[in-house]
Structure formats: C-alpha cells, structure tokens
Computed example of a mutant assay.
Amino acid sequence: MPEVIFAGPEGRLEGRYHPQKERDAPIAIVLHPHPQFGGTMNNKVVYNLHYAFYNMGFTVLRFNFRGVGRSQGEYDQGIGELSDAASALDYLQSMNQNSKHCWVAGFSFGAWIGMQLLMRRPEITGFISVAPPANMYDFSFLAPCPSSGLVINGTADKVAPPKDTVNLVNKLHEQKGITVTHTQIEGADHFFKDEVSHMTPMIDTVTGYVRRRITEQTR
C-alpha cells in the first residue's frame, strides 16, 4: 500500500492510498481521532476501517491531519482539519474519476469532521460514524443530513457517552428521506480495545452495512 503525499491547505499531507484494479471501484476516505490526544491515521480503529473498505472492493485513502506525522501545519480546532479532509477527498477523486460511489468514515473526532464533510460534498453517498463525540461537539449542522449512514458506538464508552450518541441518532431519525442506522457494541469502550469481543463485531457490523448499501445502490 503506497505512502502518498498530497497538497493540503497548509502544505503537504501524508496518507496511505490503497487502490483497486477496477477503474470504477467505489472510493472511501477514513478520518482519524483527535490530533491532540494521540490520534493518527495508524489508530487501530482507523486502520481496521481502512482495510474493511478495501476488502469490500473500495479504493481507500486514510491520512494524517495537519500537524500529525509528516503532515504540515498546526492543529486548527477542526476548521482546518475539515479543509484537510476536503483536500484528501479532492485528491482521491482526482485519482478515481470513474468512481460512482463515495463514502466517508470517521472515528471520534474524525466522525465529527466526516459529518461536516458530508454536508459540503453532495457526491458522498454514505457514511460510517464510529463513536461520534456528541457530548463534546455540536452536530446540529446536520439539518438536514444529506445521506444515509451508520452510527456505531460501544455501550461502555466513557469518552463519548452512549446517551449522547442516542440523542444524536434520535434527532437524525426525525429527518425525512434518509435512514440512519444505529448499532451499539455491548461492553465496548471508546477504542474497541478487545479485539475479539469489540473490534471484530464493530468491523463486521460496518462491513455488513456497507455491503447492503452498495448492493442497493447498484441495483
């Protein structure tokens, strides 16, 4: 899987790009957790989401936000990170101009950025939001949420408490024309640390959901 460097708003951004042989393969970007709390593109949840999408036939890009790893710039309270995500999607689309499906997946802080990107890019056809920190960030910009997706979290998450995630999902359920699916992984913490009991069921849920959606979209 090639390491890539592409242009971002504040200089170079470092990523990992995993293309398919098929030129019209669907594309996905995966966004990492908070840069100031150790979040990088090599976070275990991000890494596993990346390979889940690749194994489903997607061409995938994950990358480091500004100021992380070899990416240039400094942390920018989410404003600059949203611009980074838009640049990453531009890069991915420029390399895959025949793709008909575009997904965004994000974990924690990355889920918040991903949902904002969703609002700005109508070509995004689906989203995966893992452990969205609805207790820390305002998600009211999702009015209306432009596409259907999956929200998934652990019942033992102390960083982003389940009750706040449920409140977010309930608000999204009130909107017409989209379907937001919500799944909770029993006993999982914010990082899905237990590989067998938490990480694997989370990734299996994501895979099952995306496969269903892609089948529906290609009918």
Rank of each mutant, 00 (worst) to 15 (best):
F139P: 14
A134Y: 08
N135M: 00
G126H: 08
T125A: 11
P132A: 04
E123C: 05
L118Y: 01
Q116K: 15
Y137D: 08
R120D: 12
N135K: 13
F127N: 11
D138I: 09
S99I: 10
A105Q: 02
S129I: 11
C102M: 13
S129G: 05
L118S: 07
I124F: 08
C102V: 15
G106N: 05
G114Q: 07
L117S: 06
P122C: 11
R120K: 15
A143M: 07
A131D: 06
N96V: 06
N98S: 10
L142I: 07
S99N: 11
M136A: 14
Y137H: 07
S129Y: 02
E123Y: 11
Q116F: 00
W103Y: 15
Y137M: 03
P133C: 02
V104D: 02
F109N: 01
P122F: 03
S140D: 14
I128W: 08
S108L: 02
R121I: 05
G114K: 03
F107S: 09
S140K: 11
L142R: 08
D138W: 02
M115P: 00
M115F: 03
P144W: 01
W103T: 07
L117A: 10
G126Y: 06
S108Y: 06
S108E: 05
S140T: 15
A131H: 01
F141M: 08
H101F: 14
L142N: 10
Q97Y: 08
W112F: 11
W103E: 13
R121L: 11
E123V: 02
P133T: 12
A111I: 13
R120S: 15
K100Y: 02
R120V: 13
N135Y: 03
E123G: 04
G110N: 06
W103H: 11
S108Q: 00
F109V: 12
R121G: 06
A143W: 00
L118D: 01
T125I: 02
N98C: 12
S99Q: 13
A105I: 06
N96T: 05
A134P: 14
I128Y: 02
F107K: 01
R121D: 14
L118G: 05
W112H: 13
S129R: 02
C145F: 04
M136S: 15
P133K: 11
V130W: 04
W112K: 03
R120I: 08
M136N: 15
V104I: 09
S140N: 13
G110H: 00
R121A: 07
G114N: 02
F107P: 12
A105E: 03
F107R: 08
E123I: 08
S99H: 10
F109Q: 09
G126W: 08
F139D: 12
N98T: 14
W112G: 02
S108R: 03
R121E: 13
A143H: 10
G126M: 04
H101Q: 15
I128V: 14
N96L: 05
A131N: 07
L118F: 09
F139Q: 10
K100Q: 15
E123R: 03
N96P: 12
Y137C: 04
A131V: 07
